[in-house]
């Protein structure tokens, strides 16, 4: 067995725990749908939204949903001291982070598929013209977002304000990501709008930083 298999074992553990009474996906989805509904009302049931607004609102909903859901992970790891188990195993400890990220991304992705579908239906947003681009943007965006969220949830994991702090830290840190995703989604909804390559680079930069930083720092953050 190599590191990849160990990685999948860790992911499997998170997903299995989620299926057993973790309600990550369900709570994400219901919170997100509720927000879509509220946004629809706040806009006074506008019959059609400009593409720029639609993309902005979509990412606002996704950001809030992910940020709130990120902390749900920790209580289970702490309950019987489970997190120390992988810590004792002969593996690189940062692998634990990557597995958590992957599991969180998977769950956020599942939730956002439902969320996005309802978003388009409820707010009556036209189907994205560049559908391939749209899918790629959503996939990369949620990947970067859940990575940053997992990292910040780890940082805030020891804080007594954990639940509030993760959104408070996540939003300012990922504002460039937020802007980039809005622009790219706008482009996908309305290809006439040109999104500069710089925005793609920003998303890429977030992925690289979230990918590399925990390799150096994860063990440090969690040390007792």
């Amino acid at each position: 067995m190599n590191s990849v298999q160990v990685f999948w074992t860790l992911v499997w553990k998170d997903l299995r725990a989620e299926m057993r009474g973790g309600r990550f996906v369900v709570s994400c989805l219901s919170f997100g749908v509720l927000m879509v509904l509220i946004v629809g009302m706040a806009l006074n049931a506008a019959p059609h939204l400009p593409a720029s607004w639609a993309s902005g609102l979509l990412w606002m909903v996704l950001f809030f949903t992910t940020a709130l859901a990120m902390t749900r992970h920790d209580a289970k790891e702490q309950e019987f001291g489970g997190w120390m188990g992988p810590w004792l195993a002969p593996i690189d400890r940062s692998l634990v982070f990557y597995a958590r990220w992957c599991a969180a991304w998977f769950m956020v992705l599942v939730a956002s598929v439902g969320l996005i579908a309802l978003f388009f239906i409820i707010l009556n947003v036209p189907f994205p013209v560049a559908f391939g681009t749209f899918v790629a943007v959503v996939a990369a965006g949620t990947l970067a977002l859940s990575g940053a969220g997992t990292l910040l949830a780890t940082l805030a994991g020891q804080s007594s304000l954990r639940e509030v702090l993760v959104p408070i830290l996540l939003f300012p840190i990922s504002i460039p990501l937020f802007l980039a995703l809005i622009r790219l989604t706008w482009h996908a909804l309305d290809p006439a709008v040109i999104a500069g390559a710089a925005w793609v680079e920003i998303v890429g930069a977030y992925l690289v930083v979230v990918g590399v930083l925990p390799w150096l720092l994860y063990e440090l953050i969690l040390e007792v």
């Binding site: 805030a156 804080s159 304000l161 702090l165």
Partner: peptide, 12 residues
């Protein structure tokens, strides 16, 4: 401000 909140709410 997030930094100050984070710092202020961690034990140890």
């Amino acid at each position: 401000v997030g930094y100050l909140l984070l710092r202020g709410s961690i034990e140890g």
